[in-house]
Computed example of a mutant assay.
Amino acid sequence: MTFYPGDLATVDFPGVTGVKRRPVVVLSSEIYHSLRPDVIVGLITTQTKVLGVTDYALQDWASAGLRAASVFRCFIVTLPPSANLVVFGHLSERDWQGVKACVKISLTTLDDATP
Rank of each mutant, 00 (worst) to 15 (best):
M1Q: 13
M1R: 15
M1I: 10
T2Q: 14
F3I: 04
Y4R: 14
P5R: 15
P5Q: 15
P5W: 09
P5V: 11
G6L: 08
L8V: 06
A9N: 05
T10Y: 10
V11S: 03
V11N: 04
D12E: 14
D12Q: 13
P14Y: 12
G15N: 08
G15D: 10
G15H: 04
T17L: 12
G18R: 03
G18L: 06
V19M: 06
K20T: 11
K20W: 07
R21S: 08
P23H: 11
P23D: 13
V24M: 05
V26I: 12
V26Y: 01
V26A: 01
L27E: 04
L27R: 04
L27C: 06
S28V: 06
S28C: 07
S28L: 03
E30I: 14
E30A: 15
I31Q: 13
I31L: 15
Y32F: 12
Y32Q: 03
H33T: 03
H33C: 07
S34R: 14
S34M: 14
L35R: 14
R36T: 12
P37M: 04
P37C: 01
V39K: 01
I40A: 02
V41L: 00
V41Y: 00
V41F: 00
G42I: 01
L43N: 09
I44Y: 05
T45N: 01
Q47H: 11
T48A: 00
T48F: 02
V50R: 00
L51N: 05
G52T: 00
T54P: 00
T54R: 10
D55V: 00
Y56E: 02
Y56V: 01
Y56D: 01
L58N: 07
Q59I: 14
D60L: 08
D60M: 07
D60Y: 08
W61S: 06
W61D: 07
W61Q: 06
A62T: 09
S63T: 15
S63E: 15
S63N: 11
G65E: 08
G65R: 04
A69H: 07
A69T: 03
S70N: 07
F72M: 03
R73Q: 11
F75E: 10
I76W: 02
V77N: 07
L79A: 05
L79I: 08
L79N: 05
L79M: 10
L79V: 14
P80V: 06
P81M: 11
P81S: 12
S82A: 14
S82V: 11
L85W: 04
V86C: 02
V86M: 06
V86R: 11
V87E: 02
V87K: 13
V87L: 00
F88L: 03
F88N: 05
H90M: 09
L91P: 02
L91C: 04
S92M: 05
E93R: 11
R94H: 09
R94M: 11
D95F: 07
W96R: 13
W96E: 09
W96M: 13
Q97R: 13
G98H: 09
V99P: 04
A101N: 09
A101Q: 09
A101R: 13
A101E: 10
V103T: 05
V103A: 05
K104M: 11
K104D: 11
I105G: 03
I105L: 12
L107N: 12
L107C: 11
L107V: 04
T108G: 14
T109S: 15
T109N: 12
T109C: 09
T114K: 13
P115A: 14
